[in-house]
């Protein structure tokens, strides 16, 4: 076996690409959970975003319009969840599962006939001088714009949650909805908006899969990415900057196993391709076993139904 064919530049570059869809979906879910809502429908929202983005991009010929379509698709499908859980006060776990099952079905249905097409792509960013630097240039500074938009979004969310009044209100709603309600904040509508934001991010993450990472449309192509995004929020202990770390870790595992497969390592493809899922489980165990750290940052009202009794 020849490991020298693995170039660190290419590995790092593909790691960033592999991490981006999960990071996008996870940062949306982080905001949703910070507002006190557990939306298990990330997988469903992602796949709807993937198909909406793909179809819009193919029909308009522009990947950017594709992103727009994906964002709208994600918002639209997450509004079902928002309506069910916030207005009709339905169980969040069950509604999230329903969203995933529905999303998988509906995406396969509308994507019927779009398989085997190559979508329009994004131009890669080229920053004069910087992108020409050795190593750093090709590995980190010459990707498509979405890779950087993803990181920027994480920073913006961090800023919003920690440095703005509205962010503080959102966290208060997630921490104790009764107290926030007593202070006069509109718990339902704050959560409703957070859920739609989560839907938009998941939709963008899905579109990144179908437009850049794969790039193709196939049924069920998210293959658990939405669930891994949920796990990364737990891994990050609801802290945006740790979410980048988490996404890159999983991106790294994915890329390593793909490269090892390509090298023909003796372990067997089936076992290598389990790696991302197994690593997710191991990381979840490590984080959750440290009880203090894992629960200290969890929003106090996470998953609880808010009903203003008065």
């Amino acid at each position: 076996m020849d490991f020298s064919s693995l170039s660190p530049v290419a590995l790092l570059a593909s790691l960033m690409v592999a991490a981006t869809p999960i990071m996008l979906a996870a940062i949306g879910e982080l905001v949703v959970e910070k507002s006190g809502v557990l939306n298990l429908g990330v997988e469903g929202m992602m796949i709807v975003g993937a198909v909406c983005g793909f179809i819009t991009a193919v029909e308009t010929g522009s990947a950017w319009f594709g992103l727009l379509g994906a964002a709208l698709g994600g918002i639209l499908i997450s509004s079902i969840f928002a309506f069910l859980t916030q207005i009709l006060l339905a169980n969040q776990v069950a509604s999230g599962l329903a969203l995933t099952l529905f999303g998988l079905g509906v995406s396969a249905m509308i994507g019927n006939g779009y398989t085997g097409i190559k979508p329009p792509g994004f131009n890669t960013v080229h920053i004069p001088l910087l992108s020409d630097l050795p190593f750093i240039g090709p590995a980190i500074l010459s990707h498509d714009p979405i890779v950087y938009i993803g990181i920027l979004l994480v920073i913006l969310v961090w800023y919003f949650l920690n440095k703005t009044k509205n962010g503080l209100v959102l966290r208060a709603v997630g921490e104790n909805h009764d107290a926030a309600h007593a202070l006069g904040y509109k718990v339902i509508w704050i959560r409703f908006s957070a859920i739609l934001f989560g839907g938009m991010c998941a939709g963008l993450g899905g579109a990144y899969l179908s437009l850049v990472r794969v790039p193709q449309w196939t049924e069920g192509m998210t293959a658990g990415a939405g669930w891994i995004a949920l796990a990364i929020v737990v891994f990050a202990s609801w802290k945006p900057y740790r979410l980048i770390l988490g996404a890159y870790l999983f991106g790294g595992v994915t890329i390593m196993q793909l490269n090892l497969q390509a090298l023909g390592v003796e372990i067997g493809i089936a076992y290598l391709s389990m790696a991302p899922y197994l690593v997710t489980i191991i990381v979840l165990v490590m984080i959750s076993s440290n009880h203090l750290r894992s629960s200290a940052n969890a929003p106090g009202s996470l998953g609880r139904i808010f009903h203003a009794s008065q």
Partner: peptide, 12 residues
Amino acid sequence: AAIQAFQGMLLF
């Protein structure tokens, strides 16, 4: 897949 969407809708 239409039937899968149909079943998901039922749960909604």
